[in-house]
Design a protein around this nucleic acid. Structure first.
Lengths: 344, 344
DNA sequence: TTTATTTGCTTAAACGTTTACTTAAACTGT
DNA sequence: ACAGTTTAAGTAAACGTTTAAGCAAATAAA
């Protein structure tokens, strides 16, 4: 209670109280060689006593760096991205940095707009997952050329030379498809998203490779695209697809399509896995308690976020970029459950 | 390509190019009366041409406001919080503000630490959901007294006079419990979280009220607490509880306990809803496709986030605080599904 | 002792804005 | 024609740090 409750205490205040110059305060707090041990202690003590907290904006302005990074992602209500943020945050917090969060909602326009803002020097670095409809990448290039390090995770942009944390989308889709084929599926459909982010193309590639390997012809009609939002319309679209194409296996390429697929099957009175088997790319822990438990491709979301942050802080610390070492693929895992149980 | 690719263009650059003073640039860009229409246009044009983006830190320093808010929440890998962030972001983006995100991981120490940092003036306002073990609220009081508006959502702090967006935890737990009682349960257990955030106390209150109303004695042994993290240990704890207390109904008070409960029942070969009925507080869309579909208390997460942001921006715009009008409760909804189906 | 070096601190400029105050010119109305 | 007002600028200080440069006193080297 004895402490100054009064207004803003800054270096000037401390300087006045201690009868030294502002420079002395600044240097003492940054543990500069210039300042004597005794003075340092006095400064630190009174700073604590008066609850001095440095003004980050003055500091950022002067130092031309902000101790802030941007996390740019398409959406947040998705177990993959929220777990990834958790991973990112675990490093950001530890490094005493701050994280600004930006949601593109998968819109190129918003993404470009955000990058434009960031060109002000607002952040020291960026961790991002690219919007699905981003084709023109000049906004990203320009920020990078302005000296702001960028690390991609999950939805990477191959044409930008920088660190990239991916998971093996091609391979895991390949494994998932192979799994379905081994469990007896002959007519597997891939449910994907309109707009087509590149990772979904990779998943499609893995899917096709497995089909080819098992000498199943991949037909265009087996690939169906939904809107990237959970809604009734997608259920209708999928039902229509199931009725006309009659797949005996479905690979849902994004989280919310699991619910869509299950509900469509239920409405059509199709039994999973007897009539149709299902695999979904999702990180939700509820997969284990679905009806039936869902076979999933589990992505290492937390680790991807963490690794992306580690690499970014490496760049920020001035480590030379070694592209070969920074193009990292963390494996996803096929978790087999009852939705793909073998049926006679 | 003709544009200046060169280094940082700031007001000084523009001033030099246009042969006017820096003040003129600043005023023109902020559409001041002081500047002639023609000059304004010239300034705006060249600013665009040279890709001028104002330095936010210089601006924040000078104006003593940052156009930034903080979102402080316990965790993010939770459908309630991620949907709430979505709601918050919808307003923040529209207001051209920026959002810093902080995760307390339900730790008072981290929360207090974060508030200490924020006392630097880093943000103009705060939207938060309080950590469950926060008892000492001086850090919050101090920030508020320093003039930073704070809006609470979900886990509010009743002792701080400010806007609060809640959902009717007491009532929805009451409804959920009543629902179970009406469906024939006689021995209902409440699964809750150690550390006990206040909303869980409200839920416990509603639970007890329903029991009393139906003349069921509420026993201490019916309330069981788990750690606030999805893990095997919780499953074991719950199994133990079910074996000893033999409840015929369970109310899981937080999202991840749904999976815990279902798995515990499965391992004990208990059928839901025949042997035991389950309700959970969760926003996950997968509730509909669980085995069996889960009766949930669905919270208006997005709307709560959005409303919290609206109120905060009201305060930031200088609207006088009207506490009576800013203590808002948005209703949760009991969505009845098969996990509480009536059994003979 | 004299000259160099080190120590511990101060001065003042800079970071890029915003804004109160000043100024000069161009209009008013009388 | 002249005081008064309006318009359209410019000047310079401020926001709170950081840091290069300077400087006096103390210490070390010769």
């Amino acid at each position: 209670m004895a402490e100054a409750k009064s207004n803003k205490v800054n270096m000037k205040t401390l300087a006045k109280v201690l009868n030294v110059s502002i420079a002395t305060i600044s240097k003492a707090l940054r543990d500069s060689h210039d300042i004597g041990e005794e003075t340092k202690q006095r400064v630190i003590e009174t700073a604590k006593l008066l609850h001095y907290v440095p003004n980050p904006y003055a500091s950022s302005l002067r130092k031309r760096s902000s101790n802030t990074i941007a996390i740019i992602i398409p959406e947040i209500a998705d177990s993959f991205f929220s777990q990834a943020i958790n991973g990112i945050e675990s490093i950001v917090g530890q490094e005493k940095y701050h994280a600004l969060i930006y949601l593109t909602h998968d819109s190129y326009e918003r993404e470009a707009q955000m990058f434009n803002d960031l060109s002000s020097g607002r952040v020291d670095g960026v961790i991002m997952s690219v919007a699905s409809n981003t084709k023109d990448i000049r906004h990203i290039q320009e920020l990078q050329q302005a000296g702001v390090p960028i690390v991609f995770f999950d939805r990477v942009c191959e044409d930008i030379p920088t660190a990239k944390i991916k998971t093996d989308d091609f391979n895991s889709a390949y494994m998932a498809t192979k799994h379905l084929l081994e469990r007896g599926c002959k007519n597997i459909s891939l449910v994907t998203i309109e707009g087509y982010p590149s990772i979904l193309q990779a998943r499609e590639g893995g899917y096709k490779k497995a089909l080819t390997e098992y000498q199943v012809k991949s037909k265009e009609e087996n690939i169906i695209s939904c809107s990237n939002k959970y809604n009734q319309e997608n259920i209708a679209v999928l039902k229509e697809h199931i009725i006309t194409v009659k797949p005996d296996g479905i690979i849902a390429t994004v989280e919310h399509l699991a619910t869509t697929t299950y509900l469509a099957c239920e409405e059509l009175r199709l039994n999973i896995p007897n009539d149709i088997k299902v695999v979904c790319f999702t990180n939700q822990i509820t997969a284990a308690i679905l009806n039936p438990p869902l076979t999933t491709v589990l992505q290492p979301a937390y680790d991807m976020g963490r690794k992306a942050a580690e690499l970014l802080f490496g760049h920020l610390a001035g480590k030379p970029i070694q592209l070969e070492k920074e193009n990292i693929t963390l494996p996803s895992k096929l978790v087999v459950r009852d939705s793909t149980r073998a049926t006679n």
